[in-house]
Design a protein around this nucleic acid. Structure first.
Length: 317
RNA sequence: GCGCAGGUGGCGGAGCGGUCAAUCGCAUGUGACUGUAAAUCACACGCCCUAGUGGCUACGGGGGUUCGAAUCCCUCCCUGCGCA
């Protein structure tokens, strides 16, 4: 206990999509002198605003924030790691880890509270639990080659090269198999074992996890209402613009959810009327997957309203 | 009323004498997750249980043929299309 007082405190706000994370984070930030670091794998991309539900920028945000990789302001609260990457590039967890880690240090230096807010569980965990990811950047050429093979072939190859990894890996998941082989083939060594565990948080920080809990039916309604709103706000135009600026349909589809389905509609693969329910379903499934991830983390304090979050935060300091 | 096509699990849709509790897709449930993570992937999914090469009820209703029927025949009911 006494130790904790010497550790820097950081707050993590998470929850499924449409649960109201951004709003909560802003309130907490304003009350407790915080700055927000986004943990959202899609809000990181510039030009993906409506579809990702990115908070708008205050007028006073300097135009040069992008070039300088500076946070932008919303309701006077700095937001880090929004608009930090081009949608034409591939942003990865590893980059996130570095950038977000740096943001934490900067915020602490100012004696403010870092508030990590987002729904990308993998990003949050990589950051908080300091995953030691293998230093092997993506190799598109190799990936394209491996992509041609079947999952079974890839699995056999991995089994030969790294039996230990083959034992634990999902042998039907090509994406996982390809990455594992990518690591093995470039390092000529087995995939290192990930040492971090979810048992305790990273040593140098004292972390408060706040999770927003919503009943399933309510969440579905929130998703549906939000979807309608996004369409009205011009989401279709946003996707068109991205494509016009050189983001391929394939890439847009790979972003998932609104980008995937609107891209399919714009390519005439599907009608508008068909698209809406499919997209709605897809978002619901996504919310479920997020919860599956979060449930493993027993350190999360699940709350239902702002008051509870405030109380938790009060006690934390 | 006549003709044609159909009625299969929550839905769509295979099967057309045995190996069918019934391919597959969707939905639903549960889960995985080592640089694409809004991505990618797995498992379960008629009912019952001591959970098994287990029991029971099932392919619109009823009856029949057959060692054996979701599959063939008769009949009734219902749906769609065409002709009246």
């Amino acid at each position: 206990m006494a130790n904790n007082q010497s550790k820097s405190k950081i707050i993590v706000i998470l929850g499924p999509t449409a649960s109201g994370k951004s709003d909560l984070a802003v309130k907490i930030a304003r009350k407790f002198n915080g700055e927000i670091i986004s943990a959202d794998s899609r809000q990181i991309y510039r030009g993906m605003d409506i579809g990702t539900g990115k908070v708008p920028k205050d007028k006073k945000t300097p135009k040069s924030y992008i070039l300088n990789l500076k946070p932008y302001f919303y309701k006077s609260v700095p937001h880090h790691l929004l608009d930090a990457a081009s949608p034409k590039s591939t942003f990865t967890v590893s980059q996130y880890q570095k950038l977000a880690g740096k943001a934490i240090r900067e915020i602490l230096k100012k004696n403010k509270v870092p508030i990590i807010c987002g729904g990308t569980g993998f990003y949050i965990d990589a950051l908080i639990y300091d995953y030691k990811l293998p230093e092997v950047p993506p190799n598109p050429k190799l990936r394209r080659e491996l992509e041609k093979k079947s999952a079974n072939e890839l699995f056999k190859q991995l089994k030969k090269l790294d039996p230990a990894r083959a034992k634990n890996i999902d042998q039907f998941n090509k994406r996982r198999l390809i990455r594992a082989l990518e690591i093995v083939l470039t390092t000529k060594k087995p995939v290192p074992i990930l040492s971090a565990s979810l048992q305790g948080s990273k040593k140098e920080y004292d972390v408060l996890f706040i999770g927003i809990k919503k009943p399933q039916e309510e969440l579905k309604k929130l998703i549906s209402k939000r979807l309608e709103k996004r369409l009205k706000q011009g989401m279709l135009k946003e996707v068109k613009n991205l494509h016009r600026q050189g983001v391929s349909w394939k890439k847009l589809e790979s972003f998932g959810l609104e980008y995937r389905w609107l891209a399919r509609y714009l390519q005439n693969k599907i009608s508008y009327a068909e698209m809406i329910p499919l997209l709605q379903k897809d978002i619901e499934h996504y919310a479920k997957r997020q919860m599956t991830w979060f449930k493993r983390n027993k350190n999360i304090n699940w709350i239902e309203n702002y008051k509870q979050a405030e109380k938790l935060t009060d006690n934390f300091f």
